[in-house]
């Protein structure tokens, strides 16, 4: 059974060198054309499509032995898919991992941007399910590609405005479309729109990988990222009327936790590292205990 014997070996960071080069070239073009989705020959990864294969391929193409990797899902390091992806890189790249936002050189994320401000030299890698911001208006790739080419974003504004006319609100609360460097309309991945302002002029490099849809795109550091809005309906973010129950933070994104079957709720920071650091620094919320 000679076929069986050959299965065990894989390259550093799983991908073969030719694949890494292909992804690396795509990343460079993505940086040179901020917000434009570069098609790339996404590979089959040993984890399911839709579970971060795009982000994993981007991370695998850039990561090296000197890096410290942080992986979060829903803002938390301990969610199962984050644990699984972090374990994958520990295994195939033997790379140092951390849960501290500040210590990480690469942060791979699904659905959140960390609360702590990012710094120069850090790379934020987003896992993206549907990279095309116009997809929910037009399912055809051939059509949306043309709309981007012609900078024809009127339809998007119409849709957002219809929401306002009907509901008094823009009914998009996450994956809220942005315009990058005044040109491309981009899907910021399904982060809550609470996080959108963090993308604007971030000192970190932001890379986006969509494995199933085979697209890579980027926002270079210090690049303008503007959430689409209207003069009479400016972009606003969600505010919570309660502080984090554990650390008392009033300016972070909170998860709602159901405590009992009688309507009991509490709100806690979605960014677990941020919350823990605050508690270690002595902040205590209404239901927390001093660290």
């Amino acid at each position: 059974m000679s076929a069986i014997e050959g299965i065990a070996r894989t390259n550093f960071a799983y991908l073969d060198e030719q694949t890494k080069r292909m992804i690396r070239r795509a990343i460079l073009k993505a940086i040179a054309i901020p917000g434009y989705q570069v098609p790339f020959a996404s590979r089959e990864m040993p984890m399911p499509y839709g579970w971060g294969t795009g982000g994993v391929q981007v991370t695998a193409a850039i990561i090296g032995p000197e890096d410290r990797l942080k992986v979060i899902d829903q803002g938390a390091d301990d969610t199962t898919n984050a644990v699984s992806i972090r374990a994958f890189f520990e295994k195939v790249a033997n790379v140092a991992v951390t849960t501290h936002t500040r210590d990480a050189t690469i942060i791979q994320t699904r659905h959140r941007i960390p609360e702590a401000p990012l710094s120069e030299g850090q790379v934020l890698v987003y896992q993206v399910p549907i990279p095309e911001p116009l997809r929910f208006l037009e399912p055809r790739e051939t059509e949306t590609r043309m709309m981007h080419a012609l900078e024809e974003y009127g339809l998007m504004h119409v849709k957002l405005y219809e929401d306002i006319a009907r509901n008094g609100h823009i009914a998009t609360t996450y994956a809220y479309p942005v315009q990058v460097a005044g040109r491309y309309v981009m899907d910021p991945s399904p982060i809550p729109k609470f996080d959108n302002p963090k993308m604007d002029r971030s000192p970190a490099l932001q890379l986006f990988g969509a494995g199933r849809e085979k697209r890579i795109y980027a926002v270079p550091p210090f690049t303008e990222v503007k959430s689409l809005d209207f003069e009479d309906h400016p972009f606003t973010i969600q505010r919570f009327d309660k502080p984090c129950a554990l650390c008392g933070s009033t300016h972070s994104y909170l998860d709602e936790v159901v405590l009992d079957d009688r309507g009991g709720r509490m709100f806690v920071c979605s960014d677990t590292d941020f919350c823990e650091e605050r508690r270690e620094a002595g902040h205590v919320g209404p239901l927390g205990v001093p660290a």
Partner: peptide, 24 residues
């Protein structure tokens, strides 16, 4: 393989986005 991945990814946590929708 693509289809099953994307359909089944809906079982991953989405509570951050759901929170945003709940609020709205």
């Amino acid at each position: 393989v693509q289809a099953t991945g994307f359909v089944e990814h809906l079982k991953l946590p989405h509570y951050v986005d759901f929170q945003a929708e709940l609020d709205l």
